[in-house]
Simulated scan of single mutants.
Amino acid sequence: MKMKQPEPFMFEGDERAVLLLHGFTGHSADMRMLGRYLNNEGYTCYAPIYRGHGKSPEELIGVTAEDWWEDVQQAYQELKDKGYQKIAVIGLSLGGVLGLRLAGNTPLQAVITMCSPMFFDNEQQLTIGFRQFAKDYKKLEGKEDDVIQAEVEQLVDDSKELFQEIATSIEKVKETVDMIYTPTFVVQATNDQMINTESANYIYDSVESDQKQITWYDNAGHAITFSKEKDKVHQDVAQFLASLDW
């Protein structure tokens, strides 16, 4: 069965641009509702898809964590090449880690992290998430349960090196968060089962910006952009962006 592959989206608005970064195993659809909301508020919103994402799990483990960092840098440059000088970045989960890395390397109006990990002390949960993603994808392909189980187990085994790369990239960003002076908004679900929620406090406490905010959402899990709290998240993000000196 051939499935339609997701694509990046670009919602053009005014001169204020927002780069929307998805998480590990995700793609642009994870950020689409937020992108639409912000676009209705006037912002230009661009959501790329990193290499290997939005495709089969086999293709996902065929790339590296540094490839994704290059993809984020390229997406930022694409906005610059289109003439956007004022750019904020919003990242979900691993996208927030990449957003923090971008904030430490390039001038940004703001960085907003959403359920983003700083402590790689939960590799089992990362494995669970990847396993579920692979299983769901293969079900959509119409494969039998025994075939799915065998292929998923092989994928999990093959992904160990990639998970170690992800751990290294998270640690690299964690060590330099205190060098970020960009206005920062930390969005965190209280019932996040995928990451250590102390990550949110670490980001908030470590960034050196005079303009920073942290908000906890009690009725949300890790996929906060799809949660019951998504409307509140949209409003809070828009309010924070509106408070900036664009």
Score class of each variant (00 low, 15 high):
Gln125Glu: 14
Arg51Trp: 08
Gln188Cys: 08
Gly104Tyr: 02
Leu94Val: 06
Leu100Asn: 01
Ala103Pro: 01
Trp246Arg: 10
Ser28Gln: 02
Asp236Lys: 05
Lys228His: 15
Ser227Gly: 07
Gln132His: 14
Thr25Cys: 06
Lys212Met: 07
Ala47Tyr: 00
Cys45Pro: 02
Leu162Cys: 07
Asp210Arg: 09
Gly142Asp: 07
Val97Tyr: 00
Glu66Lys: 10
Gln85Lys: 10
Gln211Ser: 13
Leu98Pro: 00
Lys4Ser: 15
Gly99Met: 00
Phe24Ile: 07
Pro8Lys: 09
Ala110Trp: 00
Val18Cys: 03
Val207Trp: 00
Cys45Trp: 00
Lys135Asp: 09
Gln73Val: 14
Asn219Ala: 11
Val233Gly: 04
Thr184Asn: 03
Leu92Tyr: 03
Val147Asn: 08
Thr113Met: 02
Glu41His: 04
Asp136Val: 14
Tyr202His: 11
Phe240Ile: 08
Met33Trp: 09
Tyr84Asp: 05
Pro57Gly: 04
Asp192Glu: 14
Ala189Phe: 06
Met179Asn: 14
Ser209Gly: 10
Leu21Lys: 00
Thr44Cys: 05
Thr197Ala: 10
Val89Ile: 13
Ala242Phe: 05
Thr182Ala: 06
Gly52Arg: 01
Glu66Asp: 15
Gly13Cys: 06
Gln235Lys: 15
Val186Met: 09
Thr182Phe: 03
Lys55Ala: 11
Leu19Ala: 07
Lys86Leu: 12
Ile166Gln: 03
Leu20Asn: 03
Pro117Gly: 05
Glu12Cys: 09
Val233Ser: 03
Pro48Trp: 04
Ala220Glu: 11
Thr215His: 11
Pro117Gln: 07
Lys232Asn: 14
Val177Met: 10
Glu229Tyr: 01
Gln149Ser: 11
Tyr84Gly: 06
Gln213Val: 14
Ile128Asn: 12
Asp236Thr: 11
Leu155Phe: 05
Thr225Ser: 10
Thr113Asn: 02
Glu171Asp: 15
Gly35Val: 04
Phe11Ser: 05
